[in-house]
Amino acid sequence: MPETQPIIAVEGVKRHYKIGWKKHVRAVDGVSLEVHPGETLALVGESGCGKSTLARLIMRLEPATAGRILLEGQDITALRGAALQSSRRQMQMVFQDPYASVNPRLTAEDIVREPLDNFRIGSPEARRTMVRALLGRVGLSAQHATRYPHELSGGQRQRLGIARALALNPKLIVADEPVSALDLSIQAQVINLLRDLQAELGLSMLFVSHDIGVVAHVSHRVAVMYLGRIVETGTTADVVSRALHPYTRALIDAVPVEHPSQRRVRRPLEGDLPSPLNPPSGCRFNTRCPHAEARCRIEEPVLRGVGGEGHQVACHLLAEDGSLPAQKTAA
């Protein structure tokens, strides 16, 4: 990526939830990332790794416990009132569940119109035309404008959510698992829509997903999250075809392939995600890592460059040539 100012820069952000006397859930525990103009950054990880929380932190739907979030160089972590409202105009979110993310008692037109009304964009009559144009842009027709959400399909509702997010002409779209609640056939349509819009409007996008297969299709760069931390980041090509971190490799191995003859040797991850209430010491992945050594249980690895275009991995064991020590057989 060229040296431009990032649209959004996250610096060492943490989000801890207090759940009792001196007990904290560390949902996001020190994450840094940047999204550059016109770029799609995918945030990948399994359920509970903190990726949705990070998306909500960036959207200022939740306060960060520590760290800074910079929107075009301006620190928005502590903004309040009018300043916060005007920064909201720059970034919009597409939500995971298209059934719950639109108010069931408003029509499609009301839903898309709400952001325009809030910022008094154009005259009230002009807003009507703008709403129709936005609906058209996401592949809904004018006849959908008067419909209520329960009269629309899941895919149509998600298009509605996208139209609402586009209404303010934002610089950044945060898409939090935008297709995981949709049928497989609809997923492709919505992903293509997002990709087309991104290219057409020059948007920046943070695309949160648990499916690294989907991510390969939409993103320029990928950041892999595990238990509140980023373990690997780099261009999509690097991360998908030359995955270095044992966790990323496991994620990629889990993607189904097209033909049985191409079936990979499967090395499924064992065990569950450890509790973020009490994360493992040292490398957080050591409890499930097939390569883990004594050092991994003591010392926490930091992200370090491993060649490629900004390809970074947080792993102690990785050799210069990108190889890992032999896998231990299960005892």
């Binding site: 739907l61 979110m93 993310s101 709400e114 609402r164």
Partner: peptide
């Protein structure tokens, strides 16, 4: 509900 988060994101005031 997520639609309340969505309303916050699009800049709706609390009374609204």
């Amino acid at each position: 509900q997520p639609f309340v988060d969505a309303a916050i994101s699009v800049g709706s005031s609390t009374p609204k």
